[in-house]
Design a protein around this nucleic acid. Sequence first.
DNA 1: TCCGTTCGTGCAACCGGTTGCATCCCGATA
DNA 2: TATCGGGATGCAACCGGTTGCACGAACGGA
Lengths: 334, 334
Amino acid sequence: MADAVHTIADIARLAGVSKSTVSRALNGSPLIGAETRERIQAIAAEHRFQLNAPARNLSRKQSNAVAFVTYAYKKGLVADGFLLEVMSGVSSGLADEGYDLLVVHVDPEDTDWARLYLESGRADGFILMQATCTERHIQALRALGAPFSLWGGPPGAHGYCSVTGDSFTGGRLATEHLLARGCERIAFLGGFEVEREVGERYAGYQAALAAAGRPLEAGLVVYGDYSPALAATRIRELLEREPDLDGVFVNSDVMALAVMDALRGEGRRVPDDVAVVGYDDVAAAQYSNPPLTTISQNGPLAGRLLAQSLVQTIRTGVVSSHAIPAELVVRSSA
Amino acid sequence: MADAVHTIADIARLAGVSKSTVSRALNGSPLIGAETRERIQAIAAEHRFQLNAPARNLSRKQSNAVAFVTYAYKKGLVADGFLLEVMSGVSSGLADEGYDLLVVHVDPEDTDWARLYLESGRADGFILMQATCTERHIQALRALGAPFSLWGGPPGAHGYCSVTGDSFTGGRLATEHLLARGCERIAFLGGFEVEREVGERYAGYQAALAAAGRPLEAGLVVYGDYSPALAATRIRELLEREPDLDGVFVNSDVMALAVMDALRGEGRRVPDDVAVVGYDDVAAAQYSNPPLTTISQNGPLAGRLLAQSLVQTIRTGVVSSHAIPAELVVRSSA
DNA sequence: TCCGTTCGTGCAACCGGTTGCATCCCGATA
DNA sequence: TATCGGGATGCAACCGGTTGCACGAACGGA
């Protein structure tokens, strides 16, 4: 039994060539003759040889890894299945490009983590989701000149990649659906008012109403913070002010579930008295009572795009923006 | 302005010492005089110096990273919030020990990934969850002699760390609660029958019935595969066979949500006709209809323990097992 | 005063790849 | 046949840390 093969020097000895030739052959360099290259690759494969990542990263001065950054966990807030879906897409997108995925939970107040990861050579770039990062994080990354891509960022962003749902269409589809089922007074319960996505969903809501020749009533538009508790409060306040409300477009499923709960608590039937459309199509949406009609976004696809565009930025400096389609999933709540 | 400080050689120059002294000082080696060490650390801090991770990993022949391994994503199956909670705990536990967290999605059929990560020096150990890995994966890891820790594995496992919920107590608490609210005929809907956790929950169920002097009826015990669809099927079959069923302990919330749905579909009220207790306390449990009474396990805690025990194994070879408490969360479904 | 410790530090090799440059061999051209 | 060009390969330096060992100084004891 031959000794274990652990380094390119071992392969070099076996093949009767030099380290450099092995290195080039394994990296598919055109400098190496086709015949030699194939022979070396065959030997490497036979011994199931793996390049040593730290050594390669040291030489190349890059880590071949990307950090997926989220807040330190808070119960009920980021436990969103959508994050998992996106992460899964990120993971496979990165794997296809030969990058590893690092998951980092940072403190919302801390802005130094990016420099740490970059300067220590542990990550070449970052992926964030707007829902779990602050504007300060984004500013810090831009100041560093760090490559990153962001879910939910503005489409024409400067200096970084963004992937986002087509929130305008989402808002329009949701509202059109409520109109189509005959709702007369349709409320809008948004997430944080300052978020661009929320603004676009609102624009979609507005557009659908306008297209149907309905008035836009400012009193029917309220905002929350994505927490179920506040969503429930908002819907109760709204109900008191506007008792003849008969439909509501809620900006997230987690809020929508709480809203349906609150509506029931107030004696309204869903969807008979008040129809509810959510957003995100979280796993729980299909088991809620009633199953939630919602807007679905393809999380894994979003993740793939985040990964691909980030890798492109790392390699070529090119930044890009993408919008993925929003789709209406009709269940029973509207 | 001095040139940028990027390597220990720069620090060495600034401090008027050698590279080795800097390296030792920054690693807190007792070989270096306290005074020198502090001076060097001060200089490093002043320049916000970061050691280069690949170089260090290359020298030390370890990666200071751990891979959290899950299946390639499948909609609705692993989208469990519990996984996210555990991961969050793993992340902070590893961060405390100076390890990075790598997330790897593997193909269920592939058993070679561990060797790849180990031999390429990208990970020093692995963390898996039984729900998202196969027995083959575990066998492959053991055959490799790779350090790993497993959520949901057998407590006295050989060769690896395990962290698990106290499933016996969980099963007992759930069943006792159903008994306490007056249920007479309590069914058990398990996950995969072969899983140890499922067996323990069943044992807890059994023990609670025995303690109450109730008979154990084999016809009330059925198993699913954690999918909502099969759970719904099982409960309908059960209902047909045992129409006077008035309580059911379901092995996961996702199944429990589907079960409640199916029960309603069959015209039974929850909890009035049939009381339901779930397991896991997923985020959706509190917004379901009715809100689900369930067994909660502290995911972040589990994650921390997985991380800590794995790091201990990597450093010292010691393997350990932990069980975290199960807690009953009473809502409205039972 | 001389020697053996002990303590603190530096030297240089090493970890396992990558890569600029020199070298060599070959056929093609003059 | 001598020369030139270019493709294929090897040499050796380098990436930025870590660490075994040697070395020098200060100290205590005999």
